[in-house]
Design a protein around this nucleic acid. Structure first.
Length: 406
DNA sequence: TCTGGGGTCCTAGGACCC
DNA sequence: TCTGGGGTCCTAGGACCC
């Protein structure tokens, strides 16, 4: 029995959603109609393009390139900041609308969903449903989506990526040679900038070339990834629509600093502020972590990371910070200018494992109470209402995502 | 004033055990 | 006295996604 899968992809999501928000707040211009991008702040060294309008795209502006490059290509380009609180609201609106069609929805990202329509078609064709969704979203929510129609997730996703915006595309098995094999191999999902040049060297230039390459050769060269790319190129994907929300496997926060830092005390303060964010999120999800990881990026964009596995899972700010501080000390080469600092925790569990110790003291309990009190204050008065001593000033560096707080 | 921030999964090497 | 081999755990780094 063939599955009936749709992939819904919001066109220029961040830009469209910011446009709607601005219009709602009385703006006289629709930034979808002018050369515009949603991007970071160059003065904070986070100046990259997150989303672009069609007019900006016509100038050759690309997602993820620098604002500087975008401006060069497109003089007069308008730049607007991102607003994830707004994006989450629109993402939820889309999700609720889609729930009228099926409860088997996987939120693949903030602006993409997979729908498994297999049980709900009742004589209606999948294409009709796709068109209906496309029109209903535009009519009721005011932004456009592409909808990909296929019998598995990979093909539905490839289909929604064809021509944009506001389109419905099919990619059934018999359409693969015409619609997919003709595309450059770089267009295939999961083939990025590292793999594509290697394939080019092997004279594999289109998805069709890849599909016809011997699977064993790809396996020998790329391992599991090789098998996967061969299967994808041939339209093979048995993965399910994961409509049940999974707990996160890791939680992390990182920040690009407005200027390079070479002072370890300063780095420690930043690690503390990041640890507070991470553990706050951890406790909110009622999770405990067993692995602590610290990442540094130097001014030449070289990343290093160190991690440590703990004997017992914890969500305590103090415990995780102590480990993070040690990791930082281990890995930081004195004098290296640091551009980015990150703290993340992995190996998450639902339950706190109780450490069996003869010397189990009231230390942990005390610490837990403190964390809880701080969390409650943050819930009530906002994330920045309370900070640890020694953390003042650094807080202002860190871009807190308020939408995660409330 | 060129290069974000949040994730997931995989690989390879070393330690350690039997 | 020339060095097995399989298994697991841990760590660092890389690749990819949006």
């Amino acid at each position: 029995m063939k599955r009936q899968i749709l992939h819904v992809d919001v066109n220029n999501a961040f830009l469209s959603w910011s446009a709607l928000d601005m219009l709602k707040n009385g703006s006289s211009i629709d930034i979808r109609e002018i050369p515009a991008v949603i991007g970071g702040d160059e003065t904070k060294r986070s100046g990259i393009v997150l989303a672009k309008s069609m007019k900006a795209k016509e100038c050759g502006v690309k997602t993820a390139e620098t604002i500087y490059q975008a401006k060069q290509k497109c003089p007069g380009l308008k730049i607007f900041p991102s607003n994830f609180k707004v994006y989450r609201e629109y993402s939820n609106k889309l999700y609720y609308l889609l729930q009228e069609y099926t409860d088997k929805i996987e939120r693949f990202s903030i602006d993409e969903c997979f729908l498994d329509m297999s049980q709900y078609l009742m004589g209606d064709t999948l294409i009709n449903k796709a068109n209906e969704i496309n029109k209903k979203v535009k009519r009721e929510l005011g932004f456009t989506v592409n909808v990909g129609v296929a019998h598995n997730k990979l093909l539905a996703k490839m289909a929604s990526d064809f021509t944009k915006p506001d389109r419905v595309h099919t990619l059934f098995e018999n359409e693969i040679p015409d619609k997919m094999w003709t595309l450059p191999v770089s267009e295939l999902f999961m083939l990025g900038k590292r793999t594509v040049p290697k394939l080019y060297n092997m004279q594999i230039k289109t998805i069709g070339d890849l599909a016809k390459t011997n699977k064993k050769i790809l396996q020998d060269r790329f391992g599991k990834h090789g098998i996967m790319m061969w299967e994808y190129a041939n339209g093979i994907d048995e993965s399910e629509v994961k409509y049940i929300k999974e707990k996160p496997k890791g939680v992390g926060n990182s920040i690009t600093l407005p200027e390079d830092v070479t002072n370890i005390e300063k780095l420690e303060e930043i690690v503390l502020a990041l640890t507070e964010q991470v553990t706050y999120r951890l406790r909110k999800e009622k999770l405990f972590a067993k692995v602590v990881n610290v990442q540094l990026r130097n001014k030449n964009f070289v990343d290093t990371s160190h991690q440590k596995k703990l004997a017992t899972a914890t969500a305590s700010t103090k415990e995780i910070f102590n480990v993070a501080k040690e990791l930082l000390k281990q890995m930081y080469v004195k004098g290296t200018p640091i551009r980015l600092v990150g703290v993340r925790v992995d190996d998450l569990t639902d339950k706190e494992e109780i450490q069996i110790s003869l010397f189990h003291d009231c230390h942990n309990e005390k610490q837990e109470k403190l964390d809880k009190t701080i969390d409650q204050l943050k819930e009530k008065y906002g994330y920045n209402s309370i900070t640890r001593a020694g953390n003042m000033g650094v807080e202002n560096l860190i871009k807190f995502r308020k939408d995660d707080v409330k």
